[in-house]
């Protein structure tokens, strides 16, 4: 991330020096302002979801959901801890329901519990990020809303191809993580 960010910043700053040096600072501050606005909105959304999540947790519904999804989670994420299984189960359920903003706080909690403090991402952490970063949501509600606004005759006709493409993306993501993990282990064994 450090290298990517530096590259993005340097490339655009140098180009801006030629094209429009006066716009540099105002662009940065505008972007930071929109980040703050976004965070305020997110804070409101998270307050609702974290409040509800706490109730889900207190009633024991979280455990029940985790128990239901345990075989899958255990296999896919290679975790063996009830608390983490519960967070991942809630994260996945929210994602599938298309509630990306509800999934984020639970995913962050799961990541925090998965952290072993070594500074290196474990297999489970990588899998969780990749599954979340390849979008397992089934109903692209924002896209459908935008299409309806733009005067589409059938805004929802992209649902079927979207679901199919999503399944492809997530499956490839999972397969790639498994392949990379195998390669990594192979290299580690060779070094020994």
């Amino acid at each position: 991330m450090n290298k990517i960010w530096l590259l993005m910043m340097l490339a655009s700053l140098i180009v801006l020096l030629y094209v429009d040096p006066g716009a540099t600072l105002s662009t940065m501050i505008d972007a930071s302002t929109s980040a703050l606005t976004l965070c305020i909105e997110l804070c409101a959304v998270y307050a609702v979801w974290l409040g509800l999540l706490e109730i889900v947790d207190a009633t024991g519904l979280g455990q029940k959901l985790a128990k239901l999804l345990r075989p899958l989670i255990k296999k896919l994420f290679r975790v063996d801890n009830e608390e983490i299984e519960k967070m991942i189960a809630l994260n996945m359920s929210a994602n599938i329901l298309g509630l990306g903003n509800a999934a984020t706080p639970m995913g962050i909690k799961a990541m925090k519990s998965l952290d072993d403090g070594s500074g290196v991402a474990t297999f489970s952490m990588i899998m969780l990020v990749v599954v979340n970063a390849t979008s397992i949501q089934l109903l692209p509600s924002t896209v459908i809303g935008l299409r309806a606004n733009a005067g589409s005759e059938n805004p929802a006709d992209i649902i079927l191809p979207t679901i199919l493409a999503t399944v492809v993306t997530v499956s490839i993501g999972i397969i790639l993580v498994l392949i990379f993990d195998k390669i990594k282990r192979h290299i580690a064994r060779r070094k020994k």
Binding site: M1, T104, G107, I108, M111, K112, L114, D115, G117, S118, G119, V120, A121, M125, I126, L128, V129, V130, N132, A133, T134, T169, V170, I172, G173, L176, V177, F180, D181, K184
Partner: peptide
């Protein structure tokens, strides 16, 4: 997702997600 952990590098997570997308 990494913001509350000590992890600095995500290993192969980003390439995997990018290729898949």
């Amino acid at each position: 997702y990494l913001s509350q952990t000590k992890v600095k590098r995500l290993g192969y997570a980003i390439p995997c997600a990018l290729i898949a997308s």
